[in-house]
Design a protein around this nucleic acid. Structure first.
Lengths: 233, 233
DNA sequence: CGAACTATTGAACTAGGTCAAACCCAGTGG
DNA sequence: CCACTGGGTTTGACCTAGTTCAATAGTTCG
């Protein structure tokens, strides 16, 4: 769904013509800036003019909708390789914050739009990206609207395994804290905690801490997959 | 699987060349078919190849994600004027069903894609549409993830008022039943009912039945708007 | 070591769900 | 014209998944 390249490119790339572009904006890499952020920085806030869009080289970002009274919804997490803020209206409707120290490649949206107008292939790819994001968002609607807490967490772990694998075995990096996970799944941090404890107790997962945050080891993928679609508490 | 029964081909549109295009696919109206469906018909099901896309001339459609065990999420309702299934992957990930008797204008997606490739303006409009849908979906994520039952219903009524006004006053047509509303808001039909009764009791709304389904009269828009963002039960 | 977090665990509570009965029509048929 | 049927809607009584509140335990960093 998200473009995920394992490569870590730093600085201004000069892609070899021999290689196919690695991501839809490769043609603009020469004009893109590489920027590093600390943990918990705001890349842009709701209401800001959407001047730039971003590709994550390393780290993690959360897209957040903040409510007046403090309730929060983490609309999505973005990981290394992910492109974001391309398919946005001209003023952002979400806030983007780093979860941990993060390096991004920043593109000027006007340049992207110009490229899309002149190159139908790019236009098609950007639309395909929007369609993919839309599909993701809708899948998440079902998650929040109709699935139980344990189904949500199990699906989240499996999704993270797919997107942020660490080594071959079922090792998953969770750079975000419990509160972020809770705000992503429409739960409370306490519930997330209890569910994780339950899974650990059942021998379905193991937990520990790695270099970039907590890690989860999926010990029984089948059990987890079963939980992800079973209404059972 | 397409078009099970009770469909009537009405013919091909003959748009007046003198008028500016009223919607992004106006250029294709000459090749589009107008089709009528009964209540509760399936336009396409999850997994079907996405051969066509649609514009609603009259009626209402629900986009549904059906789960193995019978739970359902109504991802969105589509009303007269709405365009849908354009920004879809090549196989549908949702089922589209009519809520009431509905007339649609059907376009071949291959023709739409071809138009987009040759005309950057159309490509831009389609992408803008995808971006708008994405924004909608994300707003709904917050609704399902972080808002209470009464906030959800109040917001739904206000949204329907905006989209399906009837006459000048706060009169809203609700072509769909309680179960559909519940499956849209992540609630049960009973809860929807109780909330509506509560609102009627408070004098915030009035309910009755019109020609095309139930109607709600918004008597106190301010109270409803307040409810839509207040966590209070 | 101590401050400031974040994670974990426990106990009590409640929003909303579940189950079940009553109600209200619209349509059908006598 | 009225009774009958079958679907959705409404209401009530009870229940539980998940929240809330509160206390404890790691972890990180100075």
């Amino acid at each position: 769904m998200f473009v995920s390249s394992q490569l870590i490119e730093i600085g201004h790339d000069t892609p070899h013509a021999a290689f196919p572009p690695l991501h839809p904006l490769a043609a603009l890499d020469a004009t893109a800036a590489t920027i590093c952020f600390d943990k918990d920085r705001t890349l842009f806030a709701e209401g800001d003019p959407a001047t730039y869009c971003y590709r994550i080289l390393g780290g993690a970002v959360r897209m957040v909708k903040q409510m007046e009274d403090g309730r929060r919804q983490v609309v999505e997490f973005l990981l290394a390789g992910d492109l974001f803020a391309i398919n946005a209206p001209d003023h952002h409707s979400l806030t983007a914050e780093t979860v941990i120290a993060t390096t991004v490649c920043r593109y000027r949206r006007s340049a992207v739009e110009a490229l899309a107008d002149r190159d139908p292939a790019t236009a098609r790819r950007l639309r395909a990206l929007a369609v993919a994001e839309l599909g993701q968002a809708r899948a998440r609607l079902v998650l929040l609207g109709r699935r139980t807490a344990s189904e949500r967490l199990a699906q989240f772990l499996l999704e993270m395994e797919r997107r942020a694998p660490r080594g071959g075995a079922g090792r998953v990096v969770l750079p975000m804290g419990r509160a972020d996970i809770a705000d992503h799944l429409g739960l409370t941090p306490e519930t997330v905690c209890r569910l994780l404890t339950g899974l650990r107790h059942d021998g379905t997962i193991g937990t520990g801490r790695g270099i970039d945050g907590a890690e989860v080891m999926i010990l029984d993928p089948d059990a987890l997959a079963a939980l992800a679609t079973a209404p059972r508490h």
